[in-house]
Design a protein around this nucleic acid. Structure first.
Lengths: 376, 376
DNA sequence: TTGAAAGCGCTAACAG
DNA sequence: CTGTTAGCGCTTTCAA
């Protein structure tokens, strides 16, 4: 059965020529109209659009891609977890891609799977994407991807994905540093850290930020406890810390672990923030409503995604122009009620500016109604 | 510049003919090998694979789609929120699609946007997907989609997406019913409900389940308070309920609202579960670690996604075969510490089987280490 | 078991 | 401003 027969039969999708015929123009003109090219008279454009409308015409992207060598789509390699951070980032990426006129193809890697990223990239390449974003990957060891499209790496070193890759940080290190400094500013002698799994670059960055803050002030670096992002692991870490005895401040690498930690501390008879102060990371939706309301830092997912995609799209569309450096994402520390000056000495920490907004969380006040009690 | 020149230049991607030439076969044979067709001798297959390997050959999907009329990809219309439920469902869909050999194209709709789903579907169709899944949509009023590919609607009536659509429930109604019944079984005379935004089908289903449970036992239906899924709205609802005075049990349509609610109740001087019992919905990761540990119900995202995709793939590949009915998803009630018998009368609720596992949440025991203290 | 020929519906390059 | 002519790299017949 040839296409012509199908047409008279009536059920197949209309093509550009069909529209052209109806509008009394050439197929190329139809193409021009649908690509928003200039040099089409208003009258012709109207006729074409009209004809397309009556026929229910729709551009065929496969044909377009084949002819032009471009798909106007971006592939993303994600981790496939419902963790707040990665999920939020994916949403930001989708929106930024759509705004830039690109469709999104998503492949998740299973966390256990070695070489998962490489496989995912391969399948994306086969699908013919114009660019790839690797979102908050974990370190799988010597990955060497020979990719012939631009790659944006979010939250990991560019070297991760080969020479032609661009990278954008998600600001994790400076956020971690701010979180730690907040605790130090409150008068704590040092800050413990419950880290995320160190295979994640995201976890390493947070650790690095914590370390940097401590180093900058010449403070001790207590041993790090490594969790797995889960509240359960935070709980386990909390039990360990509680038995240690000399802990007054903890920075947890995400809010879930912070919440588990707080529960363990509380179960062990310690008060938060009376005895121990805790800062989380992410500002998950319930952070303002758990007890005590969680002091945390917030990642600028939308800004990061938008910025990164701008870079990626540029290196797709104008490969020769030098890329502008990515903006430094803003630091957003949200001070609530899980942090306070340490119990005994150094009570002079009290009253500093950083602690001012703590007073908003009074027992009967709706927590955080305005959603932005940020400092810095 | 013709393709031949590019080849000798050396940089362009190798095509099927190039592989064919090197392997000394026809291009069609290469195609046969890469499609796993039969009737290729082992020897020839080996040679082709070998040649492809040395050339770094990769199938061109655009060409394939153009020639065959199929893309082996599925489009999903999602809501673009980082809410635990929708995010988890998307992950389940991705995995199920990948397992079935389909790539995924994702488009999010902005919540405010009227006709958002229709627009998203349109863009997916233009991209040439073989099937579409609409994931937990909100009701945008009279949507009439004239879609010429199979559609799977997850968590909404099939009618939502036109005559040819398949639908799979996510079990929300029976879960809501189970949650409500749990409270009733504990001895509460009735159960209040904090609903999700009623434009969401998901929210309506939960409300329906709650109503069904109450009706079945001939209990009063207290007025419903409608939240917006956020902890803040749960908090507001809690304040309202606390001022009412006669509340002993509340079922919240998601965990975030339940947590906000509990905070409001606590702030108002009520004890949970001493004075008021609360059940949530979702079992978000921190549910087992907040205070009190949250009793909640868990949605079977993976099962639902897998089941739904099986249906979708079948109606893509075998449009004529009658679809088997979708399985009823399992009901998974997770009883923790936010529920108990009501304060005064009806103390005989105590000791029933449903409450047995509550004892696990003793003050110093790690909450829920095994992750599955489910009942029913 | 293999191959040859003919498109799929569009864009690119070049004329008018 | 508009049209013509070639493909893009596959899959689909139909033969051999």
């Amino acid at each position: 059965m040839t296409r012509g027969e199908a047409r008279s039969g009536g059920s197949a999708a209309p093509r550009g020529v069909d529209v052209a015929r109806l509008a009394g123009v050439s197929q190329k003109t139809v193409s021009r109209v649908f690509n928003g090219e200039q040099y089409v008279s208003a009258e012709v454009r109207r006729r074409v659009l009209q004809a397309a409308e009556t026929l229910g015409y729709r551009l065929n992207n496969a044909a377009r891609a084949l002819a032009s060598g471009r798909t106007r789509s971006i592939g993303v390699v994600a981790l496939g977890t419902a963790l707040y951070g990665p999920a939020s980032l994916l949403i930001g990426i989708e929106r930024a891609a759509r705004d830039a006129g690109y469709a999104l193809r998503v492949v998740n890697t299973l966390e256990g799977d070695p070489g998962g990223v490489a496989g995912a990239v391969e399948s994306l390449l086969e699908q013919g994407v114009d660019g790839i974003v690797v979102s908050e990957p974990i370190d799988e060891g010597g990955v060497s991807l020979s990719i012939d499209v631009p790659v944006l790496v979010l939250g990991a070193p560019a070297s991760f994905a080969g020479p032609r890759a661009v990278a954008t940080g998600v600001g994790a290190e400076s956020l971690a540093r701010a979180a730690t400094e907040h605790l130090l500013d409150l008068g704590h002698m040092t800050v413990h850290h419950i880290a995320g799994p160190q295979r994640w670059f995201a976890a390493r960055d947070r650790l690095a930020g914590w370390r940097a803050a401590l180093t900058a002030r010449g403070r001790d670096q207590p041993p790090v406890i490594e969790g797995d992002w889960s509240a359960a692991s935070g709980y386990a870490a909390g039990l360990e810390l509680a038995s240690g005895g000399d802990v007054t401040a903890v920075f947890a690498a995400n809010d879930d672990m912070a919440i588990g930690l707080i529960r363990a501390l509380t179960d062990a008879g310690l008060r938060v923030p009376g005895d121990v102060s805790v800062v989380g990371f992410d500002d998950i939706p319930v952070a303002a409503y758990v007890t005590p309301q969680l002091t945390t830092v917030r990642q600028p997912f939308d800004a990061v995604a938008q910025d990164g995609l701008r870079l990626l799209v540029q290196s797709i569309e104008k490969p020769d122009v030098e890329l502008p450096p990515a903006n430094d994402p803003p630091v957003d520390l949200v001070v609530r009620c899980s942090t306070a000056p340490p119990p005994r000495r150094q009570a002079q920490g009290r009253g500093r500016r950083q602690t001012a907004s703590r007073s908003r969380g009074g027992a009967h006040a709706p927590p955080d109604a305005d959603e932005s009690p940020s400092v810095r």
